[in-house]
Design a binder for these strands. Structure first.
Lengths: 334, 334
DNA sequence: GCAGCAATTGTTATCGGTATCTTGATACCG
DNA sequence: CGGTATCAAGATACCGATAACAATTGCTGC
C-alpha cells in the first residue's frame, strides 16, 4: 500500500513516475514518449504509449500548467444578468460562444466561462488570454480586466480610447445599408427604434443618420430600452398617438421589428406598401415571420472564430488588429 | 536582474516568495495570511494583505491546484454541432448555462466549457466534476465521460441503465399535462409533432400517450426531425394531403407549434375553435405570437442551478439523487 | 585506437504554492 | 522556579510534470 509505485493521485490514476517504473525507464522518457518527442526511440515510445493506454494513464494538467506556465485556457467573460435587456438570453451570444469554442478547441485550448460578476473567481488569472463579450463591453469592465495584463480581445464597437483589440460586426455599415435601402425605396420619413446607449446600437444609429444625411433626410429616434415585441408595438403606437408621420422603420433588433410591423398593421397601414421595415440580427424566425422580415444579418459564428483567432495570435506574441465584420441586408417582404 | 527577490513569473506578478521577502517573513506565513488562517497574528496578516494589495500580488492558481489536487472547476460539456437540430443554438441551453454558472460561481467554482467533440482537450480531466448537457445526453457520450471517474451529473431524461445522476425537467409530466388539457377541451384526434428519438421528446410523447389512453384516445405521431417553423408547417400540410383528420396538436417545441398554427390557418381552419395547439418551452416570443401560443414551460434557470448543486454535492462526497423539475402549462389563446 | 558525433536515456533542478512537523517565545500555574 | 500550555512563525517536504544539462552507448572516419 505504501509502496511508492502503487500510489495514486486524486483522480485515481497513476502518476508519471508510476508509469516510468512500470516501463522501467525514467519519468522524463515517459514525458517525451507521450509528447511524441523525437528524442525517444520509436520502439520505446510505442511501448510506453501502449502501457499508458493500458493503464488508462491521465496526465496531470495542473502540474503541467504549473511547469509550463501556460494553462492553454482562454477565459470568456459574458454579461449574464437576467434582465429584459439585450443579454445572454438571446440565442446569438451562444453562437458567438460556439465559434469561439470551435476555434479554440481546434487549437488545443479550452474555454473558461465566467460571468462579469463572478469574474473575481481567481481562476480567470490562470487563463492565457481573455475574451470579453457582452453588449459593447462597458468600459469599466474593460478596465478592470485590463489590469490582469493578459492578452485581451473585446467583442463590441471600437471606441476612441481603446488600447485593446476590439472585434465586432460593422454596425455603422449595418445602419448605412438600411439607410440606402430606404433611400432606394424613396422613403422620406424613417424612424429608428432602439437604445443607442449601447455602443453597438449607437453605431448603427450613426451609420443610419449619416447615410440618410446625404439626401438631406433626418430620421426620428424612438428610444426603447427593451428589445422585445411588445416594446416594438409600443413604439409604433406611441408614434401614432403623437400623430407623427413615418414611412420606414429601422428596428435595431428583429423582435422590435416584428412588434413594429404588427402594430403598424393594427393601425390599418400596409407593410411594405405604406411602411418599410427592416430588423437586425436576421434571427431564424425572421424568414418565417408573416410577412417575412427584411433584416440585417451578422455572422456570429464567424465573429466568434475571429475573436478566438485574435486572442490566440496575441498569446503567441503576434500582433492583432481590431476588425469589423461585414454585414448584409437580407431583403424579404417588408 | 538575476536577484531572486526580483524574479517575476509569466503573468508579470510577484511570487509568494517575493512577497515573503518583502514582508520579512516566510512563504508559509504569507500563504496563511492570505488564506485568513487563524495561525497568523492578526497584525501580521493585515500587514501582509496590505502589501499584497499594494503590489497587486496574484496567487498562482496552477500551483495551488497542483498542491491541493483540486481545481475548483467544473467542466460543462455541451452539444454544439451546427445543425438544424435542436442544439445549443436554441436560447435555452444558455439559460441553463447561466443557472449553472451562477450557482458554481457563488460556491467559488469556475465553469470550463467544452464541446463534446473537443472534450478530448485534456483540460476536462483537471475538473473536479462534470456536467453533461445536450439533448438527452447520448449514452455513448455518457459512457465516455464516465471513464474519467469524476463526479458527473447529466441533463436529460433518466433512462433505465443509469448509474449516474440525471437531472431534467419532467417531460413525461409535460406530455401528460397537455393530454389532460386536450381531454378537458373534448378533443378526440390529437397529433404529436416531433422527433421521439431524443430521449426527452420520447418521454413527452409517452406521457402524452399514456394520459390520453385513459380516455381511449390514441394520438397520431408526425415525426419531424427539424425543430423549425417550416417543419411545423410541413407537418400539418402533410396531414391535410393525406386527408387525416385532427383537432389538436402537441408540438414538442414552440417553433414547430407556430408553423403548425400558420399552416392550419392557411388551410382555412380556426385556431383554437377547430384545432387546439400547444407548444413546448414557452419561448419569449410565444406570448407575442398571433394568436398567443399556449405552451409548456420549463424552468431552465432553476434546472441549471440544480445541476450545479448536485455536482457540488457529489464533489463534497455527499450523495445526490436524480431529480425531475416540474413543468407548467401556460394556457393562452391556442 | 581514439576523437567526434548522433542517438537515447538519465539526473537534477524548478514551476509556486500548501501540509506537517518543529522550534522559539511568552504566559500561566502550583 | 520548573514545567506545561499557547501562540506565532519557520524548515522541510511534496504535489506531478518538464527543461537543461549530463551521461552512456554505438558507430564513423582517419
Amino acid at each position: 500500500m505504501s509502496k511508492k509505485g502503487a500510489r495514486r493521485h486524486a483522480s485515481g490514476g497513476l502518476t508519471m513516475a508510476d508509469l516510468a517504473q512500470l516501463a522501467g525507464v525514467s519519468k522524463i522518457t515517459v514525458s517525451r514518449a507521450l509528447g511524441n518527442s523525437p528524442l525517444v526511440n520509436a520502439q520505446t515510445r510505442e511501448r510506453i504509449q501502449a502501457l499508458a493506454r493500458e493503464h488508462d494513464y491521465k496526465l496531470n494538467i495542473s502540474a503541467r500548467n504549473l511547469r509550463l506556465r501556460r494553462s492553454h485556457t482562454v477565459a470568456v467573460i459574458v454579461e449574464m444578468k437576467p434582465s429584459t435587456d439585450r443579454t445572454m438570453f438571446d440565442p446569438y451570444p451562444l453562437v458567438l460562444l460556439g465559434g469561439i469554442s470551435q476555434e479554440l478547441t481546434a487549437a488545443g485550448y479550452s474555454v473558461l466561462l465566467t460571468t462579469r460578476q463572478g469574474a473575481s473567481a481567481a481562476a480567470v488569472q490562470a487563463a492565457d488570454g481573455l475574451i470579453l463579450l457582452g453588449q459593447g463591453a462597458h468600459q469599466d469592465a474593460v478596465r478592470r480586466f485590463d489590469k490582469l495584463n493578459l492578452p485581451m480581445v473585446v467583442w463590441g464597437a471600437p471606441s476612441a480610447s481603446d488600447t485593446h483589440v476590439v472585434v465586432g460586426s460593422d454596425n455603422r455599415l449595418g445602419g448605412a445599408v438600411v439607410a440606402r435601402h430606404f433611400i432606394a425605396l424613396g422613403r422620406r420619413r424613417p424612424v429608428f427604434i432602439g437604445n443607442p446607449s449601447h455602443p453597438e446600437i449607437f453605431e448603427r444609429l450613426n451609420g443610419f443618420i449619416d447615410a440618410l444625411a446625404v439626401r438631406g433626410i433626418k430620421p426620428l429616434l424612438m428610444r426603447r430600452d427593451e428589445f422585445t415585441v411588445d416594446s416594438g408595438m409600443d413604439a409604433v403606437r406611441s408614434l401614432h398617438q403623437r400623430k407623427v408621420g413615418f414611412d420606414a422603420i429601422f428596428a435595431c433588433n428583429d423582435l422590435l421589428a416584428m412588434g413594429a410591423i404588427r402594430a403598424t398593421l393594427d393601425l390599418g397601414r400596409s407593410v411594405p406598401a405604406d411602411v418599410s421595415v427592416v430588423g437586425y440580427d436576421d434571427m431564424p424566425l425572421a424568414a418565417s415571420f408573416l410577412p417575412p422580415l427584411s433584416s440585417v444579418r451578422q455572422d456570429w459564428q464567424e465573429g466568434g472564430m475571429l475573436l478566438a483567432r485574435k486572442v490566440l495570435a496575441l498569446i503567441e506574441g503576434e500582433p492583432a488588429k481590431p476588425e469589423s465584420l461585414p454585414v448584409s441586408l437580407i431583403v424579404r417582404a417588408t
